[in-house]
């Protein structure tokens, strides 16, 4: 049933008022998480170049994330009101605390990259050790940082976000891995990028699988992800992901190929995030996506199909 009734075609639920900052944050938060994970792995396996790129990217992306989150508030000067409470029923509250744990750790790990420039001896050793501890702490929090945003979007009445709750955390986890790996392919020394290539493959697989499901398994609520700008963004994301993975696998020995495929993976992650973000907004803006699934659910339960307009007598026929 796609026929439905509405009040002058007005939306029933309200589309999020979040600006592009939040879509941007979905990307930068994921990039920070993916980079922190790669940096920790690189640190433990003796790949200093990959480690440095990961740590510095994580810090840069964290800075961008903070800017986006504060800038999108209606009252940016009240950002700290988020810290009044810790509420498990609010994914935004949970996310605030995840960021509060991730931020200092990722920051310290990045700062410790000056260790090689310190005079030898205790100062350098201490900086290296602190960097490792901080980097591991950041990596421990990173998977939560990358995936809570899926819950953030799904925990709304926005039809195509809510319906996609089983998929969104996987899409975002994959997108975060692919973005982190993409940055490593762009900036890390070629000889150390082996793990980044494997992470790129895993991330791309998760991202492609998840977004395929989002675009095809949600019935009517997949529609907003296939049409218009969200559809174009998600298709572009898919193509760029595929190109990036192929490039990452074939370009092991070529810096140019590595940089290009890394850039493609980063662009893919941006496109996917914006596609998911805008697809949800589109689903809230059209009452069809709210009314039709709810009406179908009701009709399944009560087995009484919706009454036509004329079924309501104006007053009792007997009295006329």
């Amino acid at each position: 049933m796609t026929d439905f009734r509405s009040y002058y075609g007005r939306p029933v639920v309200r589309p999020a008022v979040w600006r592009k900052d939040i879509a941007g944050y979905l990307f930068t938060g994921g990039l920070a998480a993916g980079s922190a994970l790669l940096a920790a792995g690189a640190d433990l396996t003796g790949r200093p170049g990959l480690r440095r790129v990961g740590r510095l990217t994580a810090l840069g992306a964290l800075g961008a994330s903070t800017y986006f989150l504060v800038n999108d508030l209606g009252r940016p000067a009240r950002f700290h009101h988020m810290l009044r409470v810790a509420k498990p029923t609010s994914p935004m509250s949970v996310g605030t605390w995840i960021l509060a744990a991730f931020g200092p750790a990722a920051g310290l790990a990045a700062v410790s990259e000056i260790a090689p420039r310190l005079p030898g001896g205790p100062a350098r050793t201490a900086a290296t050790a602190a960097g490792r501890a901080a980097g591991l702490a950041a990596a421990a929090v990173a998977p939560a940082l990358a995936t809570y945003t899926g819950v953030l979007l799904a925990d709304t009445a926005t039809p195509s976000w809510h319906e996609a709750y089983p998929e969104l955390p996987f899409v975002f986890a994959g997108s975060a891995l692919a973005a982190g790996a993409g940055m490593a392919l762009v900036a890390a020394p070629l000889a150390e990028t082996g793990p980044a290539r494997r992470v790129a493959v895993a991330g791309a697989a998760l991202e492609l699988y998840g977004s395929h499901r989002v675009e095809n398994e949600l019935g009517l609520l997949s529609e907003p992800y296939k049409q218009g700008r969200p559809g174009r963004l998600l298709r572009a994301g898919r193509a760029l992901t595929a190109a990036g993975v192929v490039g990452a696998l074939l370009g092991r020995r070529s810096k140019v190929m590595s940089v290009l495929s890394g850039a493609a993976l980063l662009a893919a992650s941006v496109a996917t995030r914006f596609g998911i973000f805008e697809g949800g907004i589109a689903s809230a803006a059209d009452p069809r996506y709210t009314v039709v699934p709810q009406r179908e659910r009701l009709d399944r339960i009560t087995r009484t199909p919706s009454t036509p307009v004329t079924a309501a007598p104006e007053r009792a026929p007997a009295q006329d």
């Binding site: 790669l38 792995g41 990358a146 995936t147 899926g150 809510h162 793990p195 991330g203 998760l206």
Partner: peptide
Amino acid sequence: RDLPKMWRTAGLAALTMAAAVVAAF
């Protein structure tokens, strides 16, 4: 109402992510 299921899904995705990185290294 679906939030507990959402958090569980996110937890599974987070573990998958961590496992993928460990495997890559």
